[in-house]
């Protein structure tokens, strides 16, 4: 793996600084092979940042990285990546040998957090190490248009209330007709108690039409004024 990632070579015989690669593993969310070729990683410390574009083997290769602490951000049109902190340092491999070698360490980091607040390690090693660049998810640019759907229309509470009262108005008389006379009598007796059924119990629709909400709200209980001839239809007839 490392070999294929670093099959690329500088024409210059002398390589200064560290070199490493960030590899994008295949995830359930996004297949890195489908990412556009403009996907690139930025290594920022100070001054102009270093840039590396995505290669055919789904990695970003950095060369000649001098010692320092770097913020790595990866930008892609289609996917979101986790930001990383990469520290490059020169360390003696064996104490006192004087032979200094590059050591590369990487951690996840968090935007808006302290720089020393490092997260999980994303790999470390010497020159040519392959670190992990994690995908967080896909980017969704578009807003869904809230289109018309019959189901959402029915889910509306107002609609549910209307449908329920429709069932009551039209279903009740049918129900009453199918009842045996004894139960019906009992039911009618019950309805007489209820304020809604102050009108003709045989015709709930009409009762509904003539229902005096104001007086009901006021707690009026006498039923003398409503015997089917409410003022409204009469007035209409005379007019």
């Amino acid at each position: 793996m490392k070999c294929s990632l670093f099959s690329l070579a500088g024409l210059a015989s002398t390589a200064l600084g560290a070199r490493f690669a960030l590899h994008v593993p295949n995830t359930q969310l996004v297949n890195p092979s489908t990412l556009p070729s403009s996907t690139h990683a930025i290594l920022q410390s100070s001054g102009p940042p270093q840039e590396a574009y995505l290669t055919r083997s789904n990695s970003f290769n950095f060369y000649n990285v001098s010692a320092g602490s770097y913020l790595v951000t990866i930008h892609s049109r289609d996917a979101l990546f986790e930001p990383l902190r990469i520290d490059v340092s020169l360390e003696e491999a064996v104490e006192g040998s004087g032979d200094k070698k590059e050591v590369i360490k990487s951690w996840q980091t968090f935007i808006g957090n302290e720089w020393d607040n490092k997260g999980e390690s994303r790999g470390e090693g010497g020159n040519g190490v392959v670190l992990e660049a994690r995908l967080l998810g896909k980017k969704y640019y578009f807003q869904e248009r809230s289109g018309f759907s019959p189901l959402s229309f029915l889910k509306n509470p107002m609609m549910l209330m209307a449908l329920f009262s429709m069932v009551l108005i039209f279903g009740m008389p049918k129900l009453m007709e199918n009842m045996d006379p004894e139960t019906r009598a009992e039911f009618e007796e019950m309805q007489k108690q209820s304020p809604l059924a102050s009108g003709g119990a045989a015709n709930p629709a009409q009762a509904m039409q003539n229902f005096d909400l104001a007086s009901w709200m006021a707690g009026k209980t006498d039923t003398s004024n409503s015997r089917g001839h409410s003022p409204a239809p009469q007035g209409k007839k005379r007019g």
Binding site: L8, L11, A12, P36, S37, Y53, T55, R56, Y63
Partner: peptide
């Protein structure tokens, strides 16, 4: 460059 999608295949530099 990969001819079909523009990914880098290899990169050689001459500082």
């Amino acid at each position: 460059w990969s001819a079909s999608d523009g990914r880098i295949v290899w990169d050689a530099r001459t500082p």
